[in-house]
Amino acid sequence: MPELPVRCAGIALRNPLLLASGIWGESGESLARAWTAGAGAVITKSIGSLPRPGYPNPTIESYERWGMLNAMGLPNPGIGEYPREIAVALGAGATVIGSIFGGDAEEFASLAVAMAKTGVCAIELNLSCPHAQGYGSEIGSDPAQVEEVVRAVTDAVPLPVIAKITPNAADPAGLAAAAERGGAAAVSAINTLRALAIDVELRRPILAHRLGGLSGPAIKPIGLACVWQIRERVRIPIIGVGGIASGQDVLEYLMAGASAVEIGTQVAFEGIGAFGRIGRELSELLERLGFARASDATGAAHFATG
């Protein structure tokens, strides 16, 4: 069978399928269960400096098969209280990546220092949440700010830093290039796309926050395009995210230039068994297409087109 372990951002991953930030991850036991179910690593919920309850409900509108909107509003218990959840996941043997969000470079750096003490193997920077005022894509849409934040964090901690890139910008590949200049070990792309759902009977937006982020199969071609363009601009590894529901979807992201992927919405559609199934599908597909290792597929579509 083909080898699924990959190296990405200097981290050894037992397979390239990562639990995306925001999915499960409020409790350490959920992270541990995702690891046991076969995730190659688990990424925590994005953690901020202070406890944050998130937005009121409705926070989700789901369209079966093709996608989902959410505006959770970055709920998290804060960096003071969260380390004990990470300890539970680490205790189960999980490879844990800590996601953080801040309002400026200084806050990101201080959160990274605290996160690094928890024992995570890498830090993902949420520079891309599309629905949180003062955070996420409001900072992450400007290449200069992305570079500044990434540099501040890489200067502050010895861990690999992954910058999660927003697709809600004119030039996502330019943002990835800025992250690379700042010293990022990898970029992940994409986060959700700004989106709206309307209830015609009630004549109002469904989500309490009005605007939310679209995830799921509908955004896969957009994610692929971003990964493709980022591959052409940067040399650091890419973690592909967006609408992955099958082994073939994973392979498409690998061929577009990704070294690993994150899976999120499919967990809502299918349950945590999605990791095992997608891993088996990827393995069978790699074998059928003659790949000895998952890593051999990374960027394959670029080589074919020269």
């Binding site: 999915i23 409020e26 959920s30 809502a268």
Partner: peptide, 21 residues
Amino acid sequence: QMKCALGMCDACALGPFHVCV
């Protein structure tokens, strides 16, 4: 506490379980 009700957001985590699903 319940938010997504789809077994995704973890708001209703109880041990390893999700109360919503």
